[in-house]
Amino acid sequence: MDPLVYVLDLVVFIGIFSIVSLSLNLEFGFAGLANFGKVAFVLVGAYTYAILSQIGIPFYLCLIAGASISAIVGFLVSLPTLKLRADYLAIVFLTVGEILRLIVKSEDWIGGGVWGMTVSPAISLAGISARIDTLVNIGLVYFCLFICFLVVQLLTNSPYGRVIRAIREDEVAAEALGKDRAKYRGQMLALGSAIAGLGGGLYAQYLQFIDPYMFMPMLTFTVWIMVLLGGPANNWGALLGAGLVMLFDRGANVAKDYVTLAIDPSNLQYIMFGALIILVLLYRPQGLLRESQVKTKAMEIVRRGRDAVKNK
């Protein structure tokens, strides 16, 4: 295979996983909602995309539909858990991920069951060469990533971002200060799931094939490593984490074709991921990049006021 395509392929994967990592970072890093079922929402986005694109709907509508349906699923799953503490949410989501995967696996009529389904490419013009194909994908993926990053960056540096962080810190105190935590939780899960669903749609679109085995719980954990490594509650950290983990992950996949080890490199990779999580949590629990403060006008005003006093 063309070595440049390897690199371009890696770039696409980093982009897609950055989107999913941003979504988990929004839910877990900022809002404190431990979503251990992230893969479920990637799956919803991917299958929605695949099914709709097969009946000839344009790719951008398929992406939007994948994000929307994923948002609805995220919101619905949040409902029975609204009265629960955030810890229990983790278990509910873990279960939802597996249930959805088992459904698409055993219900052939949805997406071909275990046989999976092929997905037509977004822009058919790009069948000319693998390089151009991948370049088109890079454009599409990074455009979506840019939008997602802009949204989460604006949101988390606004009074809204301050509220969701406060709820993360102390739900009861936030409630007593007028913040309806059920409402915020529902909104965060809907938005986080929408972003993950968009990532799923792009994933299906890029690989042009999906089956239930691509949506194992391992995918959720990979995204968790990205967020924990990069730094929860830091959007740049989510990108950095996605970049590093994907470099590692795709690297192991490539290495598999060229080197012979006593152990399958992709299994070795799981072991190393496990070790990495433990090391990060032990030695750098805040991740590579620290939580960023809520940057709004208020911060500038107070800082300026303080400098003015100092200079007097």
């Binding site: 009074p159 301050r162 962080r165 810190e169 105190a173 200060l177």
Partner: peptide, 16 residues
């Protein structure tokens, strides 16, 4: 019952 991970300023502003 403060929000320990947030700045003093953010603790104040969030109460508005």
């Amino acid at each position: 019952r403060l929000f320990p991970g947030l700045s003093v300023l953010d603790n104040m502003l969030v109460a508005a």
